[in-house]
Design a protein around this nucleic acid. Structure first.
Lengths: 219, 219
DNA sequence: CTCCAATCTTGTCGATGTCTAGATGCTGCG
DNA sequence: CGCAGCATCTAGACATCGACAAGATTGGAG
């Protein structure tokens, strides 16, 4: 669907947004390969060189998409956390938000982590920064868990990275296909996701109860 | 492996292998984008259409690469396991093999999990099968851990998938870039890897000691 | 109202994936 | 030994793509 803007003759008026919208549609339908600047221009109804006045290269358009996607992920995580205060609950919520985001918007995951897979060009600083911001949310949750005695007392960076790896790996395995073609796993998304997330909670609290003295979570 | 076949005239003699080798080199140097059938042909020294007599499409060449890569991963995991019999040691060994394989051969990881990222075409059955074989090694290790009381007694599929997700996620985060650009993590590969793997071992055994009665690992 | 700069178009170049037709030479059969 | 079939390789062509250059158009600052 084109934008609701009335079609102007020569100057589009909101071409940049229209290009981004069309680009998402293309990636959604046919993957990264299906995204070409010329096709985007064709969908929007402008000439094949028009996009170059808004994105100097194809990679720049993809970077813009990635920035949108990271923003969306951060928002999804913030919504999922809501006003929770219990560490394990927050950990489950943010992990589930990450995984569900990936399942519901696989094309956004494709775009977010395309870094070395496609271009070898370095990502712009703004993109790196917003990615780190999304991860910082997880870091804070893990830190909260530690403070509440629901996680081992080790290096928070290591713990947070472990949780990120777990959740990211599951999401990627699902999005990229391997899990969807293995009969043992294909039709059990919710069950596997919750087993994963609850496993972490129990593993961490079991460790915390053994090694750590001090505060306890009420779980 | 008889590779040296000096037939240079019209029929190459071992063109398929030469194409695959050249393809690896290209992906190693410039990522998936740098792999073009024409460039491969150019490197090998044949005409631009010659590869089509061995790979019906670009994706077919990538599938062949992926098959090689999965075989290599399976081999690396088998070597790492060696004749270990202690569950936790096996779990560490196979996880470390996976992660190190990804770090040492990032281009192979790119090719292995390119599924939906590039082509939307379904992977051939042979590729799926060999991927499952590599995962089956992990499944067996997890099962061994359970039998030795070094892991919770739940569904082995869920546990194995959790371990796969963890290790795969870490490997992907490293290979795809996010970790290498975050200053908190960039220069600590071995430390983070071992923290990750030991964390699983301790989490699982802590859970097993609490919930499970029965066998114990000597760790 | 004028004029400039941003925006958009047309035209072009080199590169790529894939198809078709034709050239070449290995190999098995007489 | 010779020859014919067939897999292999080459040459050419077409559509598409990213990217650049030069010209057309227009909104808005002065």
């Amino acid at each position: 669907m084109p934008t609701s803007r009335p079609k102007r003759s020569y100057h589009h008026g909101d071409l940049r947004r229209a290009l981004v919208d069309a680009a998402w549609q293309l990636v959604r339908d046919g993957g990264l390969q299906a995204l070409s600047l010329r096709e985007v221009a064709r969908v929007v109804g402008v000439s094949h060189a028009a996009p170059y006045h808004h994105f100097p290269t194809r990679g720049a358009l993809l970077d813009a998409l990635a920035e949108q996607a990271f923003t969306g992920l951060e928002h999804a995580q913030r919504v999922a956390l809501g006003d929770l205060t219990d560490g394990p609950q927050m950990l489950y919520a943010i992990g589930r938000a990450y995984i569900d985001f990936a399942r519901e918007h696989p094309e956004q995951v494709l775009v977010m982590f395309r870094a070395r897979a496609e271009d070898e060009g370095a990502s712009p600083a703004s993109l790196i920064e917003i990615g780190e911001r999304a991860f910082a949310q997880l870091f804070d949750v893990v830190s909260t868990c530690q403070q509440q005695g629901a996680a081992p007392q080790g290096d928070t960076h290591e713990l947070a990275l472990a949780q990120w790896s777990l959740v990211h790996g599951f999401a990627k395995l699902w999005v990229e296909g391997p899990l969807t073609v293995m009969p043992s796993y294909a039709n059990s998304f919710e069950r596997l996701r919750d087993a994963l997330l609850h496993g972490v909670r129990e593993g961490w609290s079991a460790q915390a109860r053994q090694t750590g003295a001090g505060v306890r979570s009420e779980n």
